[in-house]
Design a protein around this nucleic acid. Structure first.
Length: 597
RNA sequence: GGUCCUGUAGUUCAAUGGAUAGAACAAGUGUUUCCUAAACACUAGAUCCGGGUUCGAUUCCCGGCGGGACUACCA
């Protein structure tokens, strides 16, 4: 039984004995004692004052006395207002640290054959332009959540749906065909995804010019948008693609090949990966046939022009297009097909889509459509909806060139890490390979932590003009602390000091030390909560707090020069445990920590 | 218009209905013969407005005001 449940039971017994009060579980509120007060854990007395018919102070005093007498874990207490602050015995914390230190993978639950399977979709890029900062948030969240769920005992399949077909792809293809003069990644020196993105922009430029011209000749904007030759050509291309036109398919394969090579580099740099990749081009036909099946079973209906729709007005929503009049598919069509294929391919217990909150409506609709098609799992899809990354001026707009490119940003962060390291002279004794590895770790660590420390549901702001900090609540701060601990441990090993376990369980350790053990002890429940809430931010904030506390300890106490060998050993064990939790926790965020920096 | 999200120091972020609303950055000041000063310490600074529920509300409810997203034969 853990400390909390022991105390809850003890408090329950206390109020029963003292006041004849049968407390319900949620009435016994145990919380961590705030820093400014003496104590480790605090019982909130207010729920009992009515039954006690005493002032909160008096009741707190009585309950405190009772607990202290009946429980050797409690070494003391004090009451302030309606709060009973309990001191937990030092020996308890020593025993706890020994357990933490001995644990194989503290805080982690491994999956076994009985574990349930969670499929997590993230990234889901379009193959018409390179990845940007918004995708970075998506990828980091998806990867981290997969790690966190795995640490909570789920079997996880990471998946990606590549939106490799559709009108937007045809736009890049058409522009390249018209204006590209055979340009390739090799001939241009451009990364493949950037090259294709360039033609997407070129399409848009020419398309806009054409619209403008048509409007000057008297068309309304709406008419012009529909009748511009470029868009008609792109639509024709999409139709040709769906009809397996050899030439279009060949162009498509070539350009997508460029993009995939580029994406692979970006994913690799970012440190994310997938167990199973689906391609829209391979799932949309399944979606189409599902839509047709839905039409046959009268879940959907066909309009006179041949387009197929779902009427969702009964669900409080609008009507939703599922197939265009020319028979081509839309985004929703393929998502239906992809979902079905996934459930065919895997025994999925929980399907999670990591997709931005701008698509809340889309997933609401998808869920209903799958349900209407008779899939019993339709309503159980989880849309993990995260907030947008905004610039100080507002949303990033690819057409206005305000996007922050993923490759550029990562490179900048690594360069900043390199400069900082040089200024501080931290890596003067390292080989160039080591330097490369460390500055990469630190640069990416700063970026990843910056993004993941924010509550995923909230929008966040990124200011490209102010580069991401390396001091304070940042990735490098945490990495630095880890490196410092490792440095001390290396020296201890050199000095042949044994810190493989604790020899003395009756040491008189300080408040700061016992509170560090207490904090370490919270790690498993933070991992549990992060899993339930789908929130890497909880892990990030926890690690920051741990590291901040540890740095105070490191500053105020000496480790290797401590004269009492048992105390020295305790501090080494404590330090090693902190380093281990930092490494594990940061690992759950997809952030590496260095041995030195 | 409709649906949904959101509003905390100058800025970026925290706070299972609990104590004097925490950090970081930016500003100012200090700490190094001592295990890595990418550290530590100190000073100053905030809950959009109005009601309600509660012993207690940043948190829950209602009404304003501000910001955002969605509401495409785009993805």
């Amino acid at each position: 039984m853990n400390l909390e449940s022991i105390l809850v039971a003890a408090v329950s017994e206390a109020v029963k004995t003292l006041y004849g009060f049968d407390a319900e579980a949620n009435q016994i509120q145990l919380q961590k004692t705030k820093k400014e007060f003496d104590g480790d854990l605090t019982v909130v007395i207010f729920p009992f004052v009515k039954a006690a018919r005493k002032s909160p102070e008096q009741a707190g005093q009585e309950i405190g006395e009772f607990l202290k007498k009946s429980n050797p874990l409690i070494s003391g207490f004090n009451v302030i207002k309606g709060f009973l602050n309990l001191n937990i015995s030092k020996s308890y914390w020593l025993k706890t640290l020994a357990e933490i230190h001995a644990a194989e993978s503290f805080g982690i639950i491994f999956a076994d054959e009985n574990s349930k399977l969670m499929m997590i979709e993230y990234s889901s890029p379009n193959t018409n332009k390179p990845l940007h900062l918004g995708h970075i948030r998506n990828n980091l969240l998806g990867h981290s959540i997969a790690e966190i769920q795995q640490a909570n005992g789920w079997k996880v399949v990471k998946t990606n749906i590549v939106n490799d077909r559709g009108i937007h792809i045809c736009k890049s293809m058409l522009a390249w065909k018209l204006f590209g003069n055979g340009e390739t990644p090799e001939s241009s020196g451009l990364k493949g995804d950037h090259l294709v993105g360039k033609y997407y922009v070129i399409f848009d430029k020419h398309y806009k010019a054409e619209i403008k011209e048509l409007m000057e000749n008297g068309m309304t904007e709406e008419e012009a948008k529909k009748s511009a030759s470029l868009i008609l050509e792109a639509q024709k291309m999409l139709l040709a693609w769906e009809n397996n036109d050899a030439e279009v398919r060949q162009l498509w394969e070539m350009m997508n090949g460029w993009v995939y090579a580029g994406f692979d580099k970006t994913y690799n740099q970012l440190g994310v990966s997938f167990d199973k990749i689906y391609y829209e081009s391979q799932t949309y036909l399944e979606g189409k046939s599902e839509v047709e099946r839905g039409e046959a079973m009268k879940a959907f209906y066909r309009r006179e022009d041949g387009s197929v729709w779902a009427d969702l007005t009964g669900d409080g929503l609008d009507e939703k297009l599922l197939l265009r009049a020319d028979g081509t598919s839309v985004y929703m069509t393929q998502d239906i097909g992809t979902a079905k294929l996934r459930y065919n391919d895997y025994p999925i217990n929980k399907m999670v889509y990591v997709v931005g909150n701008e698509q809340n409506y889309h997933f609401q609709v998808l869920s209903i459509l799958l349900d209407k098609l008779g899939f019993e799992w339709g309503k159980s899809l989880v849309h993990f909806s995260y907030g947008m990354v905004e610039l100080p001026e507002g949303k990033m707009k690819s057409r206005e060139g305000t996007v922050v490119d993923a490759d550029d940003l990562m490179e900048e962060m690594i360069e900043t890490a390199r400069e900082t390291s040089q200024e501080l002279g931290k890596l003067d004794n390292c080989t160039s390979e080591e330097i490369e590895a460390i500055v990469r770790m630190v640069g990416l660590g700063s970026l990843k932590y910056f993004i993941l420390k924010v509550d995923p549901r909230k929008n966040m702001t990124f200011n490209p003009k102010e580069s991401i900090d390396f001091n304070g609540n940042t990735g490098p701060f945490i990495q630095y602390t880890h490196a410092r601990i490792k440095s001390v441990l290396r020296k201890a090993t050199e000095q042949k000091i044994d810190f493989s376990s604790l020899n003395n369980n009756e040491l008189d350790i300080s408040e700061k030390e016992s509170s560090l053990v207490q904090l370490l002890n919270e790690f498993p429940s933070v991992v549990r909560l992060a899993g339930e809430e789908f929130s890497p931010a909880l892990i990030a904030n926890y690690i920051y707090e741990l590291v901040k506390e540890y740095n105070q300890f490191y500053h105020d106490f000496t480790i290797l020069k401590e004269e009492n060998p048992d105390l020295k050993q305790f501090r080494l064990v404590l330090s090693e445990s902190v380093a281990s939790v930092i490494k594990t926790g940061m690992g759950l965020l997809g952030i590496d920590v260095p041995e030195r920096m």
